[in-house]
Computed example of a mutant assay.
Amino acid sequence: MKERLGKAGNRRGWKIALAVAMTFGAAWNIAGAQTAPPAADYRIVGYVGDAKPLPHVSAQKLDVINYAFARVDAKGDVSFSSPTADQTLATFTGLRKINPNLKIIVSIGGWGADYFSDVALTAATREHMADSVAAFIEKYDVDGADLDWEYPTLPGPGISHRPEDKRNFSLLLETLRARLDKLGAAHQGRHYLLTIAAADGEFVSGIELERVSRSLDWINLMTYDFHNSLTPTTGHHAGLHLPDIAPSDDRAGDKAVAQFLAAGVPAKKLNLGAAFYGRAFAGVDPAHDGLQQKYAKYVGSPSWQELVASYIDKNGYVRHWDAKAQAPYLWNAKTRTFVTYEDPESLRAKAAFVKAKGLGGVMYWEQSLDRNEELLGVLDEALGKH
């Protein structure tokens, strides 16, 4: 994620290619903001990558900031590679002055992050990582940790992996949960959060879903990147449902939720994922305005800012709406370019789905890709937070 470091790939293989353009630059402006009311029933979790300057974050519009990323080494020590991490986390925790209910979580891992398998292998390294996590939680006064291991038992981009990952991931999370509970007991019974990011389909073959859910406060479902540079056709990269012309084994948000529910994960522990960026394909076969067609070249991942500025009903790109999938897409007949993305209409559909299924809320990647918090504002309104 982050570049969003590879959130899910296609069912035909374990690989994922994700190069989300990070266009940080908006200044923070928290002067004059009012204290937010208590959080609503549905949570909004936003990933925010480290950058200088940081994007603006309206603390009243979301419940959780997932700071991305920290990394773990082979010994189990968790550290921050960014030289501005201390300042960034201080800025995030400072937003509690505006919204006392805001939670700050440090996300560990991301696409390409190694050593999870090695650390999860023994009780000693699991405990060492748990102690390291507890130490940074105390140091920075954050509210918990989010693990983004992509993916247990799978090779990913050259990461260490082994069949034992399936059981060891459960043991790692149980060790972390016990350590965070011990830390909380030393801080007047404070509850520290433990969450994970997870993809659907074959990417959960290496996870004991029901067991790990017992250790977790919630799971951030990466219900995006269903179609990307390694899938053989175009398609909705964050579609809520399958379009009529999609094969039955294609991926969609509702199918991901059903898979996790069937495995015994409580609905309230699931956050449906939303993407503040698109996927663009060139040299696309023109049938169905480029939807579910073969393509010649994958050409990028425009942010919502870029989509509004240069793509949507501009420069030959015509917006279409797939009522079955509840997803928009763009087709440029002249250049034969297809763009899949999310917009306010699709996000309202996802929010309605969250309510209908009794899910925990929505997670999105990533704050800097929005334009003046337009998409975040839609989620905030649609989930009844303001």
Results as ranks from 00 to 15, higher is better:
343 D>M: 06
304 W>P: 04
345 E>I: 02
364 Y>R: 02
261 L>P: 10
262 A>S: 12
348 R>M: 01
319 R>G: 03
331 W>E: 10
265 V>M: 10
322 D>L: 02
349 A>C: 04
342 E>R: 08
294 K>A: 12
307 L>N: 07
347 L>F: 01
293 Q>F: 02
256 A>T: 14
363 M>L: 11
313 D>Q: 07
262 A>E: 12
317 Y>H: 14
347 L>S: 00
309 A>N: 13
341 Y>L: 09
319 R>W: 07
254 D>P: 05
288 H>V: 04
333 A>Y: 09
352 A>L: 02
265 V>K: 04
283 G>F: 13
346 S>N: 08
363 M>C: 02
294 K>R: 15
259 Q>N: 13
318 V>H: 14
287 A>H: 04
281 F>A: 08
363 M>R: 05
271 N>D: 15
352 A>Q: 12
355 K>Y: 07
344 P>E: 15
346 S>H: 03
310 S>P: 02
318 V>P: 05
298 Y>P: 00
331 W>I: 09
269 K>E: 02
302 P>L: 05
320 H>I: 03
296 A>F: 07
269 K>R: 03
323 A>N: 02
284 V>W: 13
260 F>P: 05
289 D>W: 00
286 P>W: 04
263 A>V: 10
265 V>E: 03
314 K>T: 01
258 A>S: 15
351 A>K: 06
279 R>V: 09
294 K>V: 10
270 L>D: 02
